[in-house]
Design a binder for these strands. Structure first.
Length: 307
DNA sequence: AGCGAGCCCTGCGCGC
DNA sequence: TGCGCGCAGGGCTCGC
């Protein structure tokens, strides 16, 4: 469950269950799910077993669980990226294993007792890793879920997401004005603004009535503001509905689906009438993926030339 | 700097 | 019923 709302649903579901819990056991069933971990699976298991979990933090599509008792004062965290098809599920001890289970943790919580935390991932684009926490560049809290200004080293290059109170709107507008690229490319660039993927990029652009390939440097401050406002609106609405689920793949920690797929205006709606103007929505190949949009409402805007 | 291509993968739904 | 194809929410690296 990839984009910000889906990852936030997972974070919020994990937070009460894992904060204060101790990892009693770790079993790695699929080595490739540790692609982002620097050591072998034995190292991963040995370093996690017996450790306490301090919370659940998210920036963009990255999730991490800060760990207690880090060696030599170095702060460490268990970093999770769901990739295209990853899930983190909380299950009763003894529940049957999912066929796509890659890594499983036994957790012991002082109040809630024993629970299992399962990392399930069909395509293995997702991964887990132990990583060092490093200070944030701006000294502000790294993401949602913790006040600590510490971010996993492998997440440090990821920009803040638009729901982060420390996200700089003016910094984002300035970066857009400086870049020579298309607006959807910019929205999908996790180093510029994080958390947005193909679904919410298309939904935001539809809401803002912008063509996906409109150049960022001629967008102008007012239209950039409109776009950012629509991005936030779409993300918040999707979060309110538990994220977007097209099938059983994208679920919360209890395995339940979100409902935002019923609210999609553009993504996956090719051939259907545009909810605004009634003309058929189209799908166009873009960046090895697809863009879904209304070719009437979202016409390429020709920037006004100075007289 | 920015971009396209390639790569990492499995499983599903569809048309034949 | 079975097979092959196209498709899928992401991100990293490389060469131009």
């Amino acid at each position: 469950m990839p984009e910000l709302p889906e990852v936030e649903v997972v974070r919020a579901g994990l937070e009460p269950a894992v904060t204060g819990a101790t990892i009693s056991s770790v079993t790695v069933l699929e080595q490739r799910s540790l692609r982002r971990h620097s050591g072998p699976s034995e190292d991963f298991v040995a370093r996690l077993t017996g450790r306490g979990i301090l919370g659940a933090v998210r920036r963009g599509k990255f999730l991490w669980l800060p760990l207690a008792d880090s060696p030599a004062g170095e702060s460490e965290a268990l970093v999770v990226h769901l990739g295209m098809s990853g899930q983190v599920l909380l299950r009763a001890v003894g529940a049957p294993n999912d066929g796509l289970l890659r890594i499983t943790f036994g957790l012991e919580h002082p109040q809630h007792g024993a629970v299992r935390m399962d990392f399930v991932d069909q395509r293995i684009f997702g991964s887990m890793a132990i990583d060092d926490l490093v200070p944030t560049a701006d000294g502000l809290p790294a993401g949602l879920g913790s006040d600590a200004a510490l971010v996993p080293a492998q997440v440090a290059h990821i920009a803040r997401d638009p729901l982060d109170p420390a996200f700089s709107d003016s910094g984002f507008f300035a970066a857009l004005a400086k870049r020579r690229t298309g607006i959807k490319r910019a929205l999908l660039d996790q180093g510029l603004i994080s958390g947005i993927g193909n679904i919410y990029a298309d939904e935001s652009l539809w809401a803002a009535r912008m063509h996906f390939d409109e150049p960022t440097n001629t967008l102008g401050r007012a239209r950039a503001k409109t776009l950012l406002a629509e991005v936030r609106l779409v993300l918040v609405r999707a979060l309110g509905e538990g994220g977007t689920s097209f099938d059983a793949q994208y679920v919360n920690v209890n395995g339940a689906s979100g409902y935002f797929s019923h609210s999609l205006n553009a993504y996956g709606q090719q051939g259907k009438p545009c909810p605004r103007c009634g003309r058929p929505l189209v799908r166009e190949s873009f960046m090895n993926r697809n863009s879904h949009f209304c070719s009437f409402c979202q016409r390429m805007r020709v920037p006004a030339t100075s007289p």
